[in-house]
Write a protein that binds this DNA or RNA. Structure first.
Length: 548
DNA sequence: TCCACTAACACCTTTGAAACGC
DNA sequence: AGCGTTTCAAAGGTGTTAGTGG
């Protein structure tokens, strides 16, 4: 029972993590944050004592995005990520360099991908434009780094890579991949959770922080829309090397088509047509949040902190049509200015749905998936896979969880956080903690056995500072200096030096199920339990991390 | 007719086991 | 026997294309 309470505390701590606000320091006393709780619909919770050791404060942790310049390149072009039924990796892959961790403290690193706004997009006139309301959010899933939990020394020793993370558009994906809607914009978020000595979530000292790198935002697609992105992928992704070189590429295409002359790919044709039609015409002012004010408004709503200037220079915003009145407030989905899109030269209206769908209907739409499919059978099957350790949300019979701290409910995801009402009927927005509670309670999908250490050095690191979310508000701010990081990179030949990171045993699916049930009944979230670690694909059992 | 989506494809890198040498 | 290195086949990731269905 105590642990249940403790987890509730953690849940509330994480509940108000804003998105897209890393460039702004959100400092405030706990009391101020506490005052926001009623607005969030959260019941009061005991204060979260900070660590007695200042060096262990999670706010001291700095996270540098690996290959940030590359991310920026993509971001400036409007990053697209392919999603497939089988799951597709992200490229650039999400890799970070951690500093400022307590070498002996154990942390859990995980990623979720949340909708960046409530729009569906369409690539029109060589730019992304709003094409209507977003579809109901997919069941949120977490990707927990397979090394988790591990000591700070381990995380800081080398780049932390999430390259195994896969994206899918299969609503019933059995592999634990992160489920996204195509033609929607998303924002990956990195969460660092401190585990206590027993790796128990939600202990009184549990703290966590969230990092959001704006340049990692992307639009999910089933095939690339922007030829710039295609070229960037080909140029930078080693797996796409076969498509490099314009002449060779064209020759290869012609070969595929059985022709003797170079052919031009569809994207090239489209791109050239678009270019002749006014390349990047009408570049839009305003940042992401200007274009998607609900993000900002949501944050304001949750924290009471005005963010009018937040993210105003986000370059990716240039590729997205500003579509909404910046004055819109949280939960306000009316008064969309759609007419602008009709003037963009689209062959058909880009905004197709908003006018036809009533607010009430939209918000009450049940997810298109059966929750039962996402729970046990799904997890059991997934355990046979060697895929990454991702966590799926499970809707329990306990139902609504928002605001009910006695209800250890793992239904909803933080994935829905920016747009809380895109949730299952009757289940109000439940922020990140719910995610995390899911990570703790839901049978993890797969055990990760593959190494996750980044394979090549990179000095291109953007550093973000962060702070513990003590009372529902993370303090995330850009660091003033960043380039001094020099990650230690382990190649395949280095595995013997870090055996713990490479030798993880998959767990038993049957056992996993049982332990999952056991967890629910006892309310214990211990990553140190061997069964859970196996389920979660988390290292730890029999694994000794070297802190030296 | 348009467009989102899927499966198949060739090309490439990565991975891991086997072979080899010291 | 143990360890490190090399080799090589299998696995897996990539963008492109044609085809399908709404």
């Amino acid at each position: 029972m105590m642990k249940v309470k403790a987890r509730e505390m953690l849940q509330e701590k994480v509940s108000a993590v804003p998105d897209g606000c890393t460039s702004r320091i959100q400092a405030g006393a706990d009391e101020d944050l506490l005052s926001e709780q009623p607005r969030l619909g959260l019941s009061a919770a005991p204060s979260i004592p900070s660590s007695s050791d200042p060096d262990q404060n999670i706010e001291n942790i700095k996270v540098a995005l690996h290959e940030r310049e590359l991310w920026k390149k993509f971001h400036e072009a409007g990053t697209e990520m392919i999603i497939t039924k089988a799951g597709r990796r992200m490229f650039p892959s999400y890799k970070v360099k951690m500093t400022g961790m307590n070498p002996k403290t154990k942390y859990i690193l995980l990623i979720d991908i949340v909708p960046a706004d409530d729009h569906r997009y369409k690539f029109c006139d060589n730019k992304w434009m709003v094409a209507g309301k977003a579809e109901p959010a997919m069941p949120g899933r977490l990707y927990v780094h397979p090394d988790s939990p591990a000591t700070g020394a381990h995380w800081m020793r080398q780049l932390v890579s999430f390259q195994k993370l896969k994206l899918t558009n299969n609503h019933l994906d059995p592999f634990g991949h992160i489920i996204l809607n195509s033609m929607h914009k998303y924002q990956p978020r990195l969460h660092i959770v401190k585990a206590d000595e027993n790796n128990v979530f939600g202990s009184k000292n549990t703290a966590y922080c969230t990092h959001v790198f704006h340049e990692t935002a992307f639009i999910s697609v089933t095939s690339y829309q922007n030829h710039k992105i295609t070229q960037l992928k080909i140029e930078n992704n080693p797996f796409a090397k076969g498509f490099r070189g314009s002449e060779e590429g064209d020759l290869r295409i012609s070969r595929l088509q059985g022709k003797d002359y170079p052919a031009i790919s569809k994207n090239v044709v489209r791109q050239r047509l678009m270019s002749s039609h006014g390349h990047l015409s009408g570049k839009l002012g305003g940042g992401v949040l200007a274009g998607h004010p609900q993000v900002l408004s949501s944050y304001q709503y949750e924290t009471g902190v005005p963010l009018s200037n937040l993210d105003a220079q986000d370059p990716i915003s240039n590729h997205f049509q500003q579509s909404r009145d910046p004055g819109l407030l949280y939960h306000c989905f009316k008064h969309r200015d759609n007419t602008r899109h009709l003037e963009r030269g689209c062959k058909r209206p880009c905004l197709e749905t908003s006018a036809a769908v009533s607010e009430e209907h939209y918000f009450r739409s049940a997810p298109p998936y059966d929750s039962s499919l996402l729970s046990h059978p799904y997890c059991t099957e997934a355990f046979n896979s060697r895929e990454a350790c991702m966590y799926g949300g499970v809707e329990t019979e306990s139902g609504s969880s928002g605001g009910d701290t006695d209800n250890v409910n793992c239904n909803m995801w933080a994935t829905m956080q920016p747009y809380p009402r895109y949730a299952v009927e009757g289940v109000p927005y439940q922020p990140f903690t719910a995610h995390f509670a899911n990570a703790a309670t839901v049978s993890p999908v797969v055990s990760h056995s593959a190494p996750s250490i980044a394979s090549r050095p990179q000095a291109d690191l953007g550093v973000y500072n962060s702070a513990t979310v003590q009372r529902g508000l993370p303090i995330i701010a850009p660091s003033s200096s960043s380039s001094s990081c020099s990650p230690v990179v382990l190649g395949p030949r280095d595995r013997s030096e870090h055996p713990a990171a490479y030798h993880k045993k998959p767990g038993s699916p049957l056992r996993s199920q049982r332990d999952f049930s056991s967890y629910h009944s006892q309310g214990t979230v211990s990553l140190r339990e061997p069964s859970f670690q196996y389920q979660a694909g988390l290292s730890g059992t029999g694994t000794q991390w070297s802190d030296s």
